[in-house]
Structures are given as structure tokens and as C-alpha cells.
Simulated assay, not measured.
Amino acid sequence: MSDTALDTRTGAALGGYEQATAGVGDFIALLKPRVMSLVVFSGFAGLMLAPGHLHPVLAAVAILCIAVSAGAAGAVNMWYDRDIDAIMTRTQKRPIPAGKVDPDEALAFGVVLSVAPVILMGLAVNWVAAGLLAFASAFYIFVYTMWLKRSTPQNIVIGGAAGAFPPMIGWAAVTGDISLASVVLFALVFFWTPPHFWALALFRRIDYSDAGVPMLPVVAGERETKRQMLAYTVLLFPLALTPYVLGVSGVAYAIGAAVLGGLFLLSAVRVLRAEEGDYKPAKQMFAFSILYLFLLFALMVGERLVLG
């Protein structure tokens, strides 16, 4: 798409803020609640799996801080990406490109909600967890959103670190430190992120191409993307068993992780073997990837609650 056409479509989509009156639901939408839910759950899992005890009120404060910080980063992301969001079919109805929320209001909303939970986490819980929270938010906004996303097809690989911090933050909220076990929980999300997002990028390739975002399928093609998805999924299989090796989880988790890992591998193989242009396996893998990560953490937490 030409720059002129892109500017025309963007300008049309971003008009009408003066007439728009944003509702509460529009500001909630800025927080990307569906994305936030998995982030919050992984943070909760880190908190539950950590050795030691945190008062229930402080635990609730820690989870709230993780949730608000994640949502705030999403709001700033929507503010910065409002031009390309107006181009992509998947994102055109977001509050800013739809003309429901003024960009300046969205930015102010995101900045305030980025700072507040870090301060609260530090004062109420501990400053190690607060520092990790601040770093994760800054990494997502400045490194991923403002730098990597539009400059390299490895945007998701490197930028995915931001979304991998919540279990480490939850762990640090209890222990006040960073351990090998919490790094493994971080790594689980980190290595899960590329096949998860590249599955989406495969069947949304045209959207990313029109918006000028160099996602791997746009730059390297479908075949190479599928190979790399399989490679990360293969690496993820033994990594998902590491919590059992470290004693963070038990046999029930190990069996569940092996089964889920096998199904995730099968999904990646089906994507690799699919004909170019056949995106049904990619859509199925994307949907399953969300369930996969949720069930991994649910197994760990469930086992901890049952066995103590």
C-alpha cells in the first residue's frame, strides 16, 4: 500500500474526536482486558508457587498492581499505534481509531496508570517486585511498541519478554527476590510467545503488510515462519517440564505438561504441513496456544492448592 493511501485511510479513521464522548467501557477497552486476563493469571501463578507467605490483602494488592500496569501499557500501546490500528481490520474498532477516545486522553490515562501501581507495589509489597513491574512496563512501551514492533521481524521474540515478567513479579512479591524457578516461569512465557503470535500473524499477514509492520510472515514468508514456530514449540516442550525438575510442581503437572506439549507440537506440525494460504491450522494453533499456557499455570497452581 502506498504512503498516500495509508495516510488517507488513517486520517479518515482517526477523525471525530471532538464530537466523541468516551464512556467507561471505552477506557476499559484501552486496557486490553482479554490480553490482561492471561497476564494477571500468570502473575497470580507466580505468587501462588513462590515459597513463603504473603498476607491475602497484600497478595490482592500485588495482583491488582500487575493488572493495572499491564492494562496501562496496553493503553499507551494503543495511543502510539493508533495510526496502524486504523489500517488493520483486527484493530480498526479499538477506541482511538474508532474516534471514541481522544489520543491525548488515552496517553494521560495510560501514563497515570503506569506510574501508580509501581509506587503502590513498592510501598505495600516490596521494591524488588515494583522494580520488575516498572521494567516490564517500560520494556513493553519503549522497547517493543516504540522500537522493535516497526523495525524488525524479531519484534515478538525480543519484545515478548515484557509479557513474560508477570509470574516473576508475582514470585518476587512473596519472596522479595529473583530465583532460578521464577526465571523458568519467565522463560515459559517467553518461548511460548513467538509461536503464539506468529500463528496470529500468519492469518493476519495482509493486515500487517498493509500497516507496514515487519512481522515474520511478511518479511520471511509463510514457510520460514512455520519452521520457526515449530522450532520454538520443540524448545518449549522440555522447558515446560522444568518446574517439575526444580520441585516447583509435582508428577500431576509433569504428566499434564507432557500431554499439552505434545498437542502443541502436533499443532505446529499441522501448521507446517498446511498448504500456503490454508490458515485453518494456524487459527487453531493460535486458539490452542492460549489454552495451553493457561492450563500449564492452572496445573501448577491447582497442584499446589491440593498438595500444599
Rank of each mutant, 00 (worst) to 15 (best):
S267Q: 07
M229W: 08
A254V: 08
L260S: 01
L265D: 05
L230E: 03
S249P: 12
S267C: 07
A258L: 14
G250D: 13
L241I: 09
F237I: 14
T225Y: 04
P243S: 13
Y253L: 13
L241F: 13
P217S: 07
A252F: 15
L246D: 06
E222A: 04
L230H: 02
A258T: 15
A268M: 01
L241T: 12
L236I: 06
E224V: 13
L236F: 13
G247N: 04
S267K: 04
S249A: 15
L246C: 06
I255Q: 12
G247V: 00
Y253I: 09
G247M: 02
G256I: 05
L260V: 00
L266P: 00
V219N: 11
L239C: 03
L241H: 06
K226R: 09
E224P: 03
A257R: 04
L263H: 10
M229N: 06
A231V: 10
V245A: 15
A257P: 02
G221W: 01
A254Y: 11
L266C: 00
A258W: 09
L241M: 14
R227C: 06
T233I: 06
T242K: 04
V251G: 02
T233M: 06
V219Q: 14
G261D: 14
V248T: 15
G221K: 02
L265K: 03
R223C: 00
A252D: 11
G221Q: 02
T225M: 09
Y232I: 06
G250W: 09
Y253N: 12
A257N: 07
